[in-house]
Amino acid sequence: MANRVETTLTQELLPLLQRDRFVTVATVDHETGGPNISAISWVYAPNEKTIRFAIDNRSRVIENVQNNDRLALELIGNESTYSITGRAKVAVNTLEDVPLKLAMVEVIVEEVRDVMFYGSRISAEPKYEKTYDKEAADKLDQQVMEAIK
């Protein structure tokens, strides 16, 4: 996808956003007007124009989106780095059937850019592990992903 600008998620990127994965989200800070970046993992794209993610409903991201709906997601995968921009809204203030107070943000994709620097590729994607009880983490992940689908 190098040097191409798309208006939707490609068939290569869509499956990457249909499971728990490390993604960063950039919003416009509601107080400073500057950038605000957060790491998220509960992300799901039901189709090539829509991305949903769950985040603590007290997160700064929520107030930022409510004040300015412009948002960018950074996705590392498919041997590259992608900037996905669009308009966001808080679609659900508190997800049902989830033990944490999480909101769901929905993003309408406007632009997808391969932003990897010239002459390189990602040789290993970011990995992370949940540092609390594995069984509890798996159960929570399943509940959240079902709620945002």
Rank of each mutant, 00 (worst) to 15 (best):
residue 1 M to S: 12
residue 3 N to F: 09
residue 3 N to V: 02
residue 4 R to D: 12
residue 5 V to P: 04
residue 7 T to Y: 07
residue 8 T to S: 13
residue 9 L to F: 03
residue 10 T to G: 06
residue 10 T to C: 04
residue 10 T to K: 03
residue 11 Q to W: 00
residue 11 Q to P: 04
residue 12 E to D: 05
residue 13 L to E: 03
residue 14 L to M: 08
residue 15 P to S: 08
residue 16 L to A: 05
residue 18 Q to E: 05
residue 19 R to Y: 03
residue 20 D to S: 09
residue 20 D to I: 13
residue 22 F to K: 04
residue 22 F to I: 14
residue 27 T to L: 13
residue 27 T to E: 10
residue 28 V to M: 07
residue 29 D to W: 00
residue 29 D to K: 01
residue 29 D to E: 00
residue 31 E to G: 11
residue 33 G to E: 01
residue 34 G to Q: 11
residue 37 I to W: 01
residue 39 A to V: 12
residue 39 A to L: 08
residue 43 V to C: 00
residue 44 Y to T: 07
residue 44 Y to K: 07
residue 44 Y to M: 11
residue 45 A to H: 07
residue 48 E to Q: 14
residue 48 E to S: 13
residue 49 K to A: 06
residue 50 T to L: 06
residue 52 R to N: 12
residue 52 R to M: 06
residue 54 A to L: 13
residue 55 I to Y: 02
residue 56 D to N: 12
residue 57 N to G: 05
residue 58 R to I: 07
residue 60 R to L: 11
residue 62 I to D: 09
residue 63 E to T: 15
residue 63 E to Q: 15
residue 67 N to M: 06
residue 67 N to W: 00
residue 69 D to H: 04
residue 69 D to N: 14
residue 69 D to P: 06
residue 70 R to F: 02
residue 70 R to Q: 13
residue 71 L to V: 15
residue 72 A to Q: 07
residue 73 L to C: 04
residue 74 E to S: 14
residue 74 E to W: 04
residue 74 E to D: 07
residue 74 E to R: 06
residue 76 I to T: 15
residue 79 E to L: 05
residue 80 S to H: 13
residue 80 S to Y: 01
residue 80 S to W: 03
residue 81 T to W: 01
residue 83 S to C: 15
residue 84 I to L: 07
residue 84 I to N: 00
residue 85 T to M: 12
residue 85 T to F: 08
residue 86 G to V: 01
residue 86 G to P: 01
residue 87 R to P: 04
residue 87 R to Y: 10
residue 91 A to V: 07
residue 92 V to A: 11
residue 93 N to Q: 12
residue 94 T to V: 15
residue 94 T to N: 11
residue 97 D to G: 02
residue 97 D to V: 10
residue 99 P to I: 12
residue 101 K to A: 13
residue 102 L to D: 11
residue 103 A to F: 01
residue 103 A to S: 10
residue 107 V to D: 01
residue 111 E to F: 05
residue 112 V to Y: 02
residue 112 V to Q: 06
residue 112 V to T: 07
residue 114 D to W: 02
residue 115 V to H: 00
residue 116 M to W: 06
residue 117 F to D: 04
residue 118 Y to E: 15
residue 120 S to E: 08
residue 121 R to D: 09
residue 121 R to C: 09
residue 122 I to P: 06
residue 123 S to H: 09
residue 124 A to Q: 14
residue 125 E to Q: 10
residue 126 P to K: 11
residue 127 K to M: 14
residue 128 Y to G: 07
residue 129 E to I: 11
residue 129 E to Y: 09
residue 130 K to C: 05
residue 130 K to D: 13
residue 131 T to F: 03
residue 131 T to C: 06
residue 132 Y to R: 08
residue 132 Y to I: 12
residue 133 D to F: 08
residue 134 K to F: 10
residue 134 K to I: 14
residue 135 E to D: 10
residue 135 E to G: 07
residue 136 A to K: 15
residue 137 A to S: 13
residue 139 K to G: 03
residue 140 L to D: 03
residue 141 D to T: 15
residue 143 Q to P: 04
residue 145 M to V: 06
residue 145 M to F: 05
residue 146 E to G: 02
residue 147 A to P: 10
